[in-house]
Design a protein around this nucleic acid. Structure first.
Lengths: 157, 157
DNA sequence: ATGATCTCCGATCAATATGGTCGTACTAAA
DNA sequence: TTTAGTACGACCATATTGATCGGAGATCAT
């Protein structure tokens, strides 16, 4: 449950790779093509291509056509949050259906719903979490997120 | 994305209802049967029944058979966390596949994977969040969760 | 200019997960 | 013993997801 899709996984891997090449020591500024990433991480080429297309359409990366072409981060790794990446691939991230709810369809339970408010709170918290962590944080070195005290008051699992 | 299933939704609603009846002012200690909940929230009866069965099998609620039967919380609402409820219905909550990974199948990307560690961190944080909030918190009144500073350093959406 | 290489884009298919249904067996109260 | 209720397992339909295929446009090297 709460699993993120493979596409999103691939997106994260690809972006991490592009970022590390682009800002790495070896060949800074080099563009990275789809094939290179697909082979490196054993991802089906066609699927990865589609994922990258979406990322590019959403302005996270820039595409350069033709031979010697490839992809480049559209902005600094510190300015790309995990939330943006995930939303770019999987649409708005909402725990509940009723959080966007266009006026045609709303859930039958709505008026008697007793869990809407708390769920929205949880959703918010998760969003904060994902939006406070950037691609830059994933490049290693720097501490990731400040996890609220792991003093699990509850039960083990 | 990150959506929780309808079953989990139903579970939360049902538990909230049971708790509020059981600890409410009107008829404290009363058992609640499936039909009552299904009608109150317009949930398909059969599906809800199955959800409640699972919850009961997992020890979150107690079932009482026969006429005048129904369900009862197995322990105090404060001792039932949201994480427990969700896991009870949807299995272990893991963002990534590679977090449990029995030794037969592990992902091809594993050894080159560059996003495993950060993803596990995120997963932990979400788990903390869900495990620090109890059914009791959903009953209203009491403040829900302490959201870590919403000082969004990043971009709006 | 021409061909090779690459991205772009849309359509499509298969597998899996999910939401929902049905029928029956079992239990306990009246 | 009848009846109202839960317990349980098999089952189907549909939606989502993962993955594939084919062609159109762009760009660089020759």
């Amino acid at each position: 449950m709460l699993k993120i899709s493979k596409k999103a996984d691939y997106a994260l891997m690809a972006l991490q790779h592009i970022a590390s090449v682009q800002f790495g020591d070896i060949t800074p500024g080099r563009v990275v093509n789809t094939k290179e990433i697909a082979e490196e991480y054993h991802i089906p080429l066609e699927l990865l291509a589609k994922v990258l297309q979406v990322l590019s359409k959403n302005g996270l990366i820039e595409s350069h056509n033709g031979p010697k072409g490839g992809y480049l981060l559209a902005r600094s790794a510190r300015q790309i949050t995990i939330a943006q990446i995930l939303e770019s691939i999987e649409g708005p991230l909402a725990i509940t259906d009723c959080s966007h709810e266009k006026d045609g369809d709303y859930c039958m339970q709505r008026e008697h719903c007793n869990i809407r408010t708390p769920l929205l709170k949880i959703q918010d918290s998760i969003y904060q979490l994902l939006n406070n962590m950037t691609l830059g944080d994933m490049l290693g070195g720097t501490p990731l997120i400040t996890i609220q005290s792991p003093s699990a008051q509850g039960v083990e699992r």
